[in-house]
Design a protein around this nucleic acid. Sequence first.
DNA 1: AAAATTAACTTGTATAATACAAGTTAATAT
DNA 2: ATATTAACTTGTATTATACAAGTTAATTTT
Lengths: 119, 119
Amino acid sequence: MTHNTTQQSFERSFCPVACALDDLGDKWTLLIIRDLLLGKKRYQEFLASPEHIATNILADRLKKLESAGFVLQQAYQQKPVRYQYVLTQKGKDLRPILQALVKWGKTYYPGSRVLDAVE
Amino acid sequence: MTHNTTQQSFERSFCPVACALDDLGDKWTLLIIRDLLLGKKRYQEFLASPEHIATNILADRLKKLESAGFVLQQAYQQKPVRYQYVLTQKGKDLRPILQALVKWGKTYYPGSRVLDAVE
DNA sequence: AAAATTAACTTGTATAATACAAGTTAATAT
DNA sequence: ATATTAACTTGTATTATACAAGTTAATTTT
């Protein structure tokens, strides 16, 4: 996918920050990435996070993360077929960004803690 | 401001990532921070960015960035009084996050470039 | 065997956010 | 007197989000 997938009538610049925000710029996507980096794989695991993401938002984000190449959907069983999600290299390489965010956040939201530690 | 300023009926976790996304998790805020890190200060400079942010969104984000302690509004002239925006330490400390985002983005959106270089 | 449970979603709907065009205000420049 | 400028604000249509509830296919419990 190229940059800018939204319905805007003109494009943003071809800046790495702008491109990244087109894929990651919302309140939920990076929290799902955080959970994936922490080893979570299944729908119910993401739902069980104390962030309380709505089911439709989770389904939508997983779909977008897959089509943008951040995760792969894998069937972990048949009858009924059920899927789990694993990070691609593109997704795994977001770890330094999350780490920087965690470091910064722990400074400016004193007392905040990553639940299972990405740090 | 504490974490979670939105109208949700319950809170997200007190995770540094969740807290950061409450303030920064949208498609525009980090682009304004990028411009501030590049030395831009005035409303028209932000508008002149090739991202084409809408004027009402820019005004809204500057207001939120100020109330969340990322920027300070300073009058740079009287009659008529006009304001510019400068980063606080909290805002300046986002630089490593932006740098990580730029590094990652240049890898995964090949050809993308920061207009005036935050790198 | 019938009823309940489970995982992974989907659907409906009210509320909030975003995009876009246009308007406002106070002062300086022509 | 008219135009221009900087920094916004307002109106409105479209899109996204939050929340509750429903669906499907299979297994587990009673």
